[in-house]
Design a protein around this nucleic acid. Structure first.
Length: 276
DNA sequence: CTCCGGTAGT
DNA sequence: ACTACCGGAG
């Protein structure tokens, strides 16, 4: 629709108007867009990594009710945090979230830094998450791309192109950002991208960064999830009990258990495994 | 069965 | 550049 080069003031304005007029009519409402605080934004953005918004919405409310602020999360037993996380997947985010809360308390006087580079030093917070936290929590300009935003820019600025790299998209994100309302702009951009997924599903694959996911069934991801679920239900279990319940090759189980220990999920005390 | 997705490690 | 990491919806 528009040429990448040039990007006149008028083109930027037109683009913004298209995105905003869609948002005005069809913008999505979420609990994590209603009650905005640095803490709530950190929780929701961590949950939203690799996880659909509808699944996050309910878990988010339960989570912030159980752990209302950085101090509460830092003080909470890891077992409780992991339990509250069940259903979201990628449990290492729960480990990270508690570590993030502890770091905010111990190194930043309980106040979340409004700085992308500083946030990137926190566990499981990369460029995108750091940028979205600063944008949504503080309404401060940042520049980032995720799948929905990617679709929007490929659709408007790279029509017919494939293997579009993010380093071509980011400069356009910079030029088209509505600096007068960063938070609303990124909400609108993402919502437009979600709509495009339905009307133009092929756009996702036009990114150079698109990857087809590997099978879940029979994977170690599945086994890891099942081990943690069992240990949340049973307090502690012996290796032999886990072998029985999971019907798994003992050598594979033993490998996975030592990784789970190393990653801070579980601990081993005289032959009994339990949540760390 | 297939689809989705950001970070970190290699 | 490639892969491991999860769980739910369709």
């Amino acid at each position: 629709m528009y040429k990448n080069e040039g990007l006149s003031q008028k083109v930027v304005k037109t683009f913004q108007n298209i995105i905003y007029s869609y948002f005005k009519q069809y913008g999505r409402e979420f609990p994590f867009r209603k009650e905005i605080s640095p803490y709530n934004v950190v929780i929701s953005e961590m949950m939203l990594q690799q996880t659909q918004t509808n699944r996050v919405a309910e878990k988010f409310q339960q989570f912030i009710r159980a752990f209302p602020d950085f101090q509460a999360l830092a003080n909470a037993p890891f077992n409780d945090v992991l339990k509250a996380w069940q259903g979201l997947g990628y449990n290492r985010r729960a480990v990270a979230l508690k570590a993030i809360a502890e770091k905010v308390i111990s190194e930043f006087d309980g106040v979340l830094p409004a700085d992308v580079e500083v946030l990137k030093t926190f566990p499981q917070i990369g460029h995108n998450t750091a940028s979205s936290i600063v944008a949504f929590a503080f309404n401060i300009p940042t520049f980032f791309v995720e799948v929905n935003i990617r679709r929007v820019y490929i659709y408007f600025f790279f029509p017919g192109k494939s293997s579009v790299r993010d380093n071509l998209i980011i400069p356009i994100v910079r030029k088209t950002l509505d600096r007068s309302n960063v938070r609303k702009w990124y909400y609108a951009l993402m919502d437009y991208g979600v709509m495009l997924k339905k009307t133009h599903p092929e756009l996702t694959k036009k990114s150079a960064h698109y990857r087809k996911q590997s099978k879940f069934k029979g994977s170690t991801r599945e086994i890891r999830g099942n081990i943690l679920k069992l240990l949340l239900e049973n307090k502690s279990l012996m290796e032999s009990e886990l072998i029985k319940k999971l019907k798994i090759n003992p050598e594979l189980l033993s490998e996975i258990l030592s990784l789970l220990i190393k990653e801070g999920f579980i601990k081993q005390e005289d032959n009994q495994y339990s949540i760390a």
